[in-house]
């Protein structure tokens, strides 16, 4: 059968054509095509990875921003609270200082009042004693006009001294 007996001419040409084809394609075409395919596959893979990373980062950034905002709010609240606290403290301090000052003034006033009262007392006493002395002098002058009254008094005084001793 002709079909099962390979023809030499055809084998020869098949070898030649196939070898030529293999050489040309193997040298110039396939390596470049395969390389391009792989490079593109790589490129796409990297792109996908990059996109995923970017998305992840974006998500992270969002949550981070939310966290920052929350923190800021917390800080704000704290600051406000501090301010309120400081205000009351200031007022308290001011009150304290005022009351202290008032007390000081009061004390000073009291002291001066006391002093003036003492001075007045002293003056009053002096005046009273002067007055009493004057009265006593006048009374004495009246009583001691007679000689007998004078000696009587001297005797009386000496008696008193003697009685004391």
């Amino acid at each position: 059968m002709e079909l099962f007996t390979p023809d030499f001419g055809l084998i020869f040409w098949m070898f030649v054509v196939f070898a030529l084809l293999l050489f040309l394609l193997g040298k110039f075409a396939w390596p470049v095509i395969v390389k391009s395919l792989e490079e593109r596959a790589d490129f796409i893979d990297k792109g996908v990875e990059y996109a995923q990373n970017a998305k992840e980062q974006l998500d992270n950034a969002k949550s981070e921003a939310a966290k920052y905002i929350q923190e800021a709010q917390k800080q704000q609240a704290e600051i406000l609270r501090d301010a309120a606290k400081m205000k009351t403290q200031l007022i308290e301090e001011a009150k304290d200082a005022a009351s202290k000052e008032a007390k000081k003034v009061m004390d000073a006033a009291k002291l001066s009042i006391e002093q003036s009262r003492k001075e007045a007392e002293l003056q009053f006493r002096n005046e009273v004693s002067n007055f009493a002395l004057n009265i006593a002098e006048k009374v004495m002058r009246q009583n001691m006009k007679s000689e007998s009254a004078q000696s009587e008094l001297v005797n009386k005084l000496i008696d008193e001294v003697e009685a004391n001793n």
């Binding site: 023809d7 030499f8 001419g9 055809l10 020869f12 040409w13 098949m14 054509v17 196939f18 030529l20 084809l21 040309l24 394609l25 110039f28 075409a29 396939w30 470049v32 095509i33």
Partner: peptide, 28 residues
């Protein structure tokens, strides 16, 4: 005789090879 004629099959072989080259080089 030793027959290396370009027969119908050989011609088809060459045409096929050219078609393959055309395909590969068009991608290239």
């Amino acid at each position: 005789p030793l027959d290396l004629s370009i027969t119908k099959n050989v011609m088809a072989l060459i045409i096929s090879a050219l078609v393959v080259m055309l395909c590969a080089f068009s991608v290239l």
